[in-house]
Amino acid sequence: MKKLNWNNIRLVLIVVLMIFLYSFSGTKNQERKIQKINIAFNADDYPFLNETMVNNLLIQNFQGTSKVKKERVDLNKLESLLNANKYVDNSEVFCSIDGFLNAKIKQKKPIIRVFNENGSYYLDDKGNKVPLSENFTPRVPVYYGVISAKEVKQLVSLFNFIENDEMLKHNIVDIKKTQKGNIIFSVRNYDYKVIFGTEANMETKFKNYKAFLQHATKDTLIKRYKSINLIFTEQVICAK
């Protein structure tokens, strides 16, 4: 009769015990009820949504109560619910072991407000339409006119360029497009119009405009100008 190998027996017992404890803790974890909902927004986002609005939206999915077992929480469904919101760019929902439901939300970033005979809305930095909000009104330039589907890509590139440049962002207040396709800006503090032309060579045109401002603001003549023409990339033409 072979002598029992107690070391092997201990090893088997330890493995069995670990499996049991893991299974037990997993079951207890799934049985644990959601104790609280934590909402985290991207710090740089516009506050279209607030914590109460998102919290209520999630609780509605739980049929009016947050005391729901973790095993019943469909995280993918909650993410889809949040992502379907008109102000949400993307979201991440997950449960922590302490019974908290966590939602990280990035809101859409409007870069222009569009006005036309059909109403008003925002365009975000990806070219998506964002409706107006009673909760918050961002300070962004205004575009007057209808934007067709074929124009969106180029115009959003232009709007993003303005949004990402601090000087242009605070200088340009509204934008129009003529029937000939020329873009015209109105600016803050001065009465002249900036005739930009098409979206082509926008970096060079804006560089020329910023160079013009740097020198022109040192002279009182800038207040007499009626238009600043940037169409020709080799020069800036000013008219009184």
Rank of each mutant, 00 (worst) to 15 (best):
F20N: 02
N135V: 07
V140N: 04
Y22M: 05
V140H: 01
K106F: 12
K205Q: 12
F115P: 04
D45Y: 03
P110E: 04
N208R: 13
V156W: 01
S25N: 01
M18L: 13
Q60M: 05
S66L: 10
F232N: 13
N56Q: 07
E51Q: 06
F94M: 01
L57A: 00
Q214V: 05
N128G: 11
T204N: 13
P138Y: 12
E92I: 01
S133A: 07
A211T: 11
Y209M: 08
K177Q: 08
Y22C: 09
I34A: 04
F206L: 06
I237E: 09
K86F: 10
S148G: 08
N201L: 10
P131S: 15
K240Q: 12
L4A: 14
I195R: 09
V236P: 02
N76W: 03
N118F: 09
N182R: 04
K129M: 03
K218A: 12
L11F: 15
R10N: 14
E203H: 06
K193Q: 12
T233H: 10
V12Q: 13
Q235L: 07
Y144P: 04
K2G: 08
I184Y: 05
R72C: 08
D125P: 00
M53D: 00
F196I: 09
M18I: 09
I222K: 04
K218V: 10
N85D: 15
H215R: 11
N182M: 00
V173C: 00
V16K: 01
G26H: 05
I97K: 15
S120E: 15
N229R: 12
F100M: 10
E51V: 07
I34L: 05
A200T: 14
K3G: 05
R188V: 03
K169Q: 05
V12H: 11
N76I: 10
I9T: 14
R32Y: 00
N7K: 15
K180H: 00
F115N: 03
K193A: 06
Q30M: 07
Q30V: 00
I222T: 07
L158N: 06
T198F: 03
R10L: 14
N90L: 05
T198L: 03
I162H: 03
E134Q: 08
C238N: 07
A200V: 14
L13S: 11
F62W: 07
I172P: 00
G119T: 10
I37M: 05
N116M: 05
